[in-house]
């Protein structure tokens, strides 16, 4: 191709010349290699290592780990705690995602109505997003304790019959973990919806109003479909977030009582570090990794199958 260009009269504007100029571009390999080496080197190395460890029966320190083939995986499939943790993850995702989306959406709509103190509400709902879950964990342990502030408040507003040891019962521990997660992430949901709602064409809203559509009708028929891109992005984030859940259940309830708040993350940690069943923990990790990839692909595929409306 170069020889053809050379025989032609020089003209910088022909397509060939432009393509030729593009080929003269310097190689990008040195530019991407530091990031590539760090990410691919570290993460893929760890994944391969995990894959190898998952075929061993090993306590992490013994010099002679026993290769056991796929035995760890067959054990996982028969492990009730694994299935329980998986069920918790699904339940956790469905509940936290629904509640967060609902609150974030309604809150964003209400704050768009130009009520007073908007900035204050915004800061209050977003503050939890920036505080580390690990920092808040002791606060929630205290707040939901039998003699904690929640029960105290319930008793003082005449709802004393609702007071209970929230974290010590299997039936209430999971809802508490869900509450904490919703508390931490609604700010993000809200900010995204708030921004997305600002992008909706005011003329469409005006036209709908002139046609006599009420606030509720507009929210359901125009605003909700209008922010669909945001909802999909949040769903994706929620699926991966649910699979990654670790800090809150580990620090607030240690996966208990009686495995009632056990997630894959807490289970992997418990098995690999305190119990030192490194091989089994690695096999659980591989399962988690596969689930995370499948989850992301499932949400992305679902989002693509519907209309190809661009996100925000």
């Amino acid at each position: 191709m170069t020889s053809i260009t050379e025989t032609r009269p020089p003209s910088a504007t022909t397509p060939t010349a432009r393509r030729n100029r593009k080929n003269l571009r310097p190689s990008g390999l040195p530019w991407i290699s530091p990031a590539f080496v760090l990410v691919v080197g570290l993460i893929y190395y760890c994944i391969i290592e995990t894959g190898y460890l998952s075929t061993l029966d090993w306590d992490g320190t013994s010099p002679t780990p026993t290769p056991v083939g796929a035995q760890n995986y067959t054990e996982i499939l028969a492990d009730p705690v694994f299935w329980l943790a998986l069920w918790h993850t699904v339940l956790f995702f469905v509940v936290t995602f629904t509640v967060q989306t609902l609150i974030g959406f309604v809150f964003a709509a209400v704050l768009h109505s130009k009520i007073r103190l908007t900035a204050v509400y915004k800061v209050l709902v977003f503050t939890p997003v920036v505080i580390a879950p690990a920092t808040m964990a002791p606060v929630f342990r205290q707040m939901f304790a039998a003699d904690g502030q929640l029960n105290w408040t319930l008793e003082h507003i005449g709802l004393g019959f609702l007071a209970q040891p929230w974290l010590a019962q299997s039936s209430t521990a999971m809802p508490v973990i869900m509450f904490i997660t919703v508390w931490e992430f609604t700010g993000l949901t809200f900010v995204l919806y708030y921004a997305a709602m600002g992008q909706i064409d005011p003329e469409v809203l005006e036209a709908a109003r002139t046609d006599g559509a009420g606030n509720l009708r507009i929210l359901v028929s125009i605003v909700w479909p209008g922010v669909r891109g945001t909802t999909v992005a949040l769903a994706m984030l929620g699926v991966i977030g649910a699979l990654k859940t670790f800090d809150v259940p580990y620090l607030v309830t240690i996966g208990g009582p009686n495995y009632s708040t056990e997630f894959l993350g807490t289970y992997i940690y418990r098995v690999s570090i305190p119990q030192a069943h490194v091989g089994y923990g690695a096999a659980l990790s591989v399962m988690l990794l596969v689930l995370a990839l499948l989850g992301a692909i499932a949400v992305a595929a679902r989002a693509n199958r519907k209309d190809r409306e661009p996100g925000v």
């Binding site: 990031a35 590539f36 990410v39 691919v40 993460i43 893929y44 190395y45 760890c46 994944i47 290592e49 995990t50 460890l53 992490g60 991966i240 699979l243 990654k244 670790f246 894959l264 993350g265 992997i268 940690y269 690999s272 570090i273 490194v278 923990g281 690695a282 990790s285 591989v286 988690l288 990794l289 995370a292 990839l293 989850g295 992301a296």
Partner: peptide, 20 residues
């Protein structure tokens, strides 16, 4: 190859990181 690492839960890295 870089993007695929996006979905990675960090708990998966624990044991190999510890050993390495």
């Amino acid at each position: 190859l870089i993007l695929a690492a996006l979905t990675l839960p960090e708990v998966v890295l624990l044991t190999p990181l510890f050993a390495t």
